[in-house]
């Protein structure tokens, strides 16, 4: 279970407060959506969960399975099952996707006390996951994200998510820059990964993603706090009325 308690976050180098007492609970097996206007702190929440530098937590805590993860390095959090699907995945020239994933898989397995996979065993696993998710693994022969289209980048993120077997998945604006077909492939992938041991937090601007990934709950994030929580119908409501009710101005 993910428990975010009264989280206050400011930028490390500026006096800018972004999250102002955010509280949220996502039980295992559930998918929660976070919606909110630009600048409400959605991406900050994703980064702080994953442990990116540049943010200072001034108050509150984040517990994953009852354990605070705030003092953990990003790779330690990854070993605990935290996975962030990036809005803008980074390019790594010269490093083939397969090399990157094998290195990451084995680094995580080592940290989780599992045996490292041999190259043939790893390749077999990649093929299986690719087939399950209907994602062509051909792109893993190319350098990580270099020259990838928006759709390829997101598909690659989902494939990574499947391989690294996380238990807490945070998807940051996974729908941005996708056409309808790509959106379907990505959503199908996410749905295939839903299971009773996994908690998912889907961050998005738009309701349309939630037609494909149907959430258990929807939270409205504005001005650094959760302003309202409801069922999947809340998303539809927002689509009609916008965020004006929560920000005091038209979004």
């Amino acid at each position: 279970m993910l428990e975010i308690k009264n989280l206050h976050v400011k930028l490390e180098d500026e006096d800018k407060v972004i999250l102002k007492g955010l509280s949220l609970t996502v039980p295992k097996g559930e998918v929660h959506a976070i919606m909110g206007p630009n600048g409400s702190g959605k991406s900050t929440l994703a980064y702080v969960l994953a442990g990116r530098d540049g943010y200072e937590v001034t108050d509150g805590d984040i517990l994953w399975n009852g354990e605070s993860i705030l003092d953990m390095e990003p790779d330690e959090r990854a070993a605990k099952g935290v996975f962030l699907a990036f809005q803008y995945p980074m390019e790594i020239p010269g490093v083939a996707g397969l090399t990157f994933l094998r290195t990451a898989t084995n680094a995580l397995r080592k940290k989780r006390g599992q045996d490292e996979l041999t190259t043939p065993a790893f390749l077999k696993l990649v093929k299986e996951k690719g087939a399950e998710l209907n994602i062509d693994i051909e792109m893993l022969k190319r350098p990580v994200n270099v020259g990838f289209s928006g759709g390829e980048k997101k598909r690659s993120e989902i494939l990574q998510m499947a391989l690294l077997e996380p238990t807490l998945c945070v998807l940051d604006e996974t729908d941005s820059g996708l056409d309808i077909d790509a959106l379907r492939v990505v959503s199908d992938g996410v749905n295939a990964l839903r299971n009773k041991d996994r908690a998912m937090l889907v961050i998005t601007h738009y309701q349309r993603l939630l037609n494909h990934i149907v959430p258990d709950k929807v939270h409205v994030l504005a001005d650094g706090k959760i302003q309202k929580t409801g069922g999947k119908e809340l998303a539809l409501e927002l689509e009609k009325s916008g965020y004006a009710d929560y920000t005091g101005k038209a979004a």
């Binding site: 994953a50 442990g51 990116r52 530098d53 540049g54 390095e73 990003p74 790779d75 959090r77 990854a78 070993a79 935290v82 996975f83 962030l84 990036f86 995945p89 980074m90 390019e91 790594i92 020239p93 010269g94 490093v95 090399t99 990157f100 290195t103 990451a104 898989t105 680094a107 995580l108 940290k111 350098p143 990574q160 690294l164």
Partner: peptide, 27 residues
Amino acid sequence: DDTLFYCRQRGLTSEEAVALVVNGFVR
């Protein structure tokens, strides 16, 4: 920092991340 963070989010320590990126660079 973003590239390093990306690698570290996937489970690599900072030194593993640098070694991976540099080895890609000199491939």
